[in-house]
Amino acid sequence: MTPVLPVLLASVNGSRSASEGPAVPMSPADLADSALAAVAAGAGEVLVHPRTPCGRESLSPRVVGPVLEELRGAGVDVPLVVPACVGAEPCAAERLERVRSWTVLPDRAVVCFAEPGARELAEALLGRGVAVDAVVPLGGRPGPTDQDPMARFLAWPVREPGRVRLVAELPSADPSWVAGLRGLPPVAVVLFGREAAAWPVLRLAGRCGTGARTGVGDVLHLPDGRPARSNAELVAAAGVVLRETADPGPTVPV
């Protein structure tokens, strides 16, 4: 029997700039087209970084709302995720105020637990009915705080595990990183890597039965090293990898 694959999240633009190639969508219309194609290729969710017309990431309701409306109006009918992180707003207090002022809500929002104010931001999002992706970098990417990001996440009493997901960024596909996730609260897990780590970590996610993430926000090349022409091409390739590596017995929550 073919195993049921966990969620595949498409990161359609990330923190990329237009200078990084034609595969990176920038305008709301291009983001919508790219998201639609990624969903058609197998993405179950879409992560989009809203930007101002000059290309700067923003949490302003005047930027976030129109991007979400563009995607939904175009027919993107899977959960939409936006980041609420330093890249869009450096000040922790301002991030919190921006989230509280949103007039159009995403289905989920990314909270970076390597950044100050993560717990308060996550609580504010949950209070507004927005599910939380708690991003925790494991090794190689320490945050600007005096506490390990995983320790910060574990210190947060997750009262609604069904609406919180741990999104672990791995520097490599070393299985020991996943072994350390088995003692976590009962939340779903997504694994991802960037650039050279992207495909090895995606294969690890397939073996472990966790959710996975791909897209030009994380990687610009296909598993065979060829440049990716689109998010849809990356998602289709990821689907093949996940089917080839899927283990019918997942080892961590998905």
Rank of each mutant, 00 (worst) to 15 (best):
V187W: 12
R100F: 06
C91Y: 11
C54G: 12
L71D: 04
S60V: 05
S19H: 12
P106Q: 11
A23W: 03
L191Q: 02
C91G: 13
A122M: 03
V135Q: 09
A131Q: 07
P3A: 13
V39Q: 05
T210F: 03
A37Y: 06
P248H: 14
R163G: 10
A35T: 01
R182E: 15
P116A: 05
V86I: 10
N13H: 00
W199G: 02
V81A: 12
V104E: 14
D224Y: 08
R229V: 10
A92E: 15
R194S: 10
D133Y: 15
S230I: 11
G75D: 13
R100D: 15
F113H: 01
P79E: 07
P25H: 06
A41H: 06
E195P: 01
L181T: 02
L170T: 06
D133K: 03
W102H: 08
R213K: 12
F113E: 03
T245D: 12
C85A: 11
P83T: 00
E233G: 08
S60K: 10
V201W: 08
V252N: 07
P116Y: 11
A38D: 05
E20A: 07
R98Y: 12
A92R: 11
R16W: 00
P223A: 10
A93D: 15
E45F: 04
F153T: 08
V164M: 12
A41R: 14
G209F: 04
A151V: 14
R95E: 15
G211M: 09
V48A: 01
L8H: 03
D174S: 08
P161K: 15
P161Q: 09
A228D: 14
A236I: 11
A23Q: 10
A173P: 00
A196G: 03
A18R: 11
E244I: 13
A38Q: 04
P90I: 04
S230M: 11
C112I: 00
E70H: 07
V76L: 05
V110S: 03
V240C: 08
A134G: 09
E244T: 15
V241F: 06
R226Y: 04
E120S: 14
A198Q: 01
P142Y: 08
G73V: 13
L234D: 00
G65P: 01
E69M: 08
T210R: 03
A122Q: 07
T251G: 15
P185Q: 05
E120C: 06
P253G: 12
P137R: 02
R226D: 14
L126G: 04
P227A: 14
L191P: 01
D174A: 08
A93L: 13
V235H: 13
G143P: 02
P106H: 05
V158Q: 12
P144M: 08
V187P: 11
P250T: 12
A179Y: 13
L170V: 02
A232F: 08
D174F: 09
P175Y: 01
P53E: 04
M1L: 09
E94Q: 13
G44T: 05
P3S: 14
R98F: 06
R152K: 06
T103G: 14
S17P: 06
V178L: 12
A114C: 09
L204I: 02
A41P: 03
P50T: 00
V48T: 02
T145C: 13
P250K: 07
D77L: 09
A238P: 09
V167T: 14
P149D: 13
D224C: 01
S176Q: 10
P175A: 04
G183F: 15
